[in-house]
Design a protein around this nucleic acid. Structure first.
Lengths: 166, 166
DNA sequence: AATTTACGTCAGCCTTGTTGACTTTCCAAG
DNA sequence: CTTGGAAAGTCAACAAGGCTGACGTAAATT
């Protein structure tokens, strides 16, 4: 495909029209991105907020409530409502910290892990199809732009949440 | 089922881990994407729903309510609430259709256009910075992947809303 | 001992989405 | 001309999921 040369002249990809296309691409794609899990969730009593909590607990088992708060960027009251139902329904387990007993370390139960798999399977299937159709080079660009679009704090969360903290 | 075996060349960009990164990139980037307009909107009595309406009316002046409904993917009751306040506040004008007087053709007033500019300036600034940092090739990939991630209907809206319909 | 931190909870509010039922307007087909 | 149905608007009721503020408790820190 005819890529623009990296020389200084073609800054055409920065025109307002191109930017508007980018903005709308984000809007429409995000809808597609959430559509599949949403369909699954709406058959249960859960919503997108539950999905997010489950996703990040799965990603970082043993993470604390305040860690999750920082990642999700919501208030503790809002998160607590979600977390409470997940714990009541036996999808999430909150273990009191060994070293610091004020902390609650969050884990998915087998049942929670099962729902997580169901949700992320659906979401990954779409992402995989999109990735495959677009090819590795496009995927690389996709990730580069998205990362550049994040707030610095969010970028840090994105890059390095390998360990759940001390 | 198992992973598709790497057919010679690396399909490593389709691993579950890579897909998970893509999923989280979408999540965090979308937050950044909406952050700037949200900050502006919260000082007024408006929310993200108002922004979306204003954006698409600006994009397709004279669009009808049902057009907007299809683009935004919400119920007319939900859209109507937003639209009503925008009309009351003098940001949007609803002109009765000439050919079909049931239709309302939506236009931004000067005041509405001013808010649109303020909002999209903020959003474009971030998008521009991200595009510039990533480069044209990455931007191309970004758009390719996002497009592949949309639902077919959304993709159609994305590609061809040049004209406001018959 | 006093303060700070982590978490939970109650109460109340807002935005933005949903359904369902109903009316008005008006184009177009019979 | 009548009528069916599409387009638009409205009212009512409700839910999810954000928010703030206030308060309580246990545990760690100073």
């Amino acid at each position: 495909m005819a890529e623009t040369p990296p020389s200084g002249e073609s800054l055409l990809f920065l025109t307002d029209e191109q930017l508007r296309k980018g903005i709308e691409a984000m809007f429409f794609a995000y809808r597609g991105f959430t559509a599949d899990p949403d369909r699954i969730l709406e058959t249960m009593d859960y919503g997108r907020a539950h999905h997010r909590a489950i996703h990040f607990i799965h990603r970082s088992p043993g993470t604390t409530v305040s860690n999750l708060l920082a990642i999700l960027g919501v208030t503790k009251q809002s998160l607590n409502r979600v977390l409470r139902t997940l714990i009541e329904d036996g999808l999430v387990e909150a273990r009191v910290g060994r070293r610091d007993k004020r902390e609650r370390h969050l884990h998915l139960t087998p049942k929670g892990a099962e729902l997580e798999r169901e949700l992320s399977d659906a979401q990954r299937a779409r992402m995989r199809a999109a990735f495959r159709a677009a090819g590795p080079q496009a995927v690389s660009g996709f990730r580069t732009v998205l990362e550049a679009m994040m707030d610095p704090e969010q970028r840090k969360q994105y890059q390095g949440l390998k360990e759940a903290g001390p």
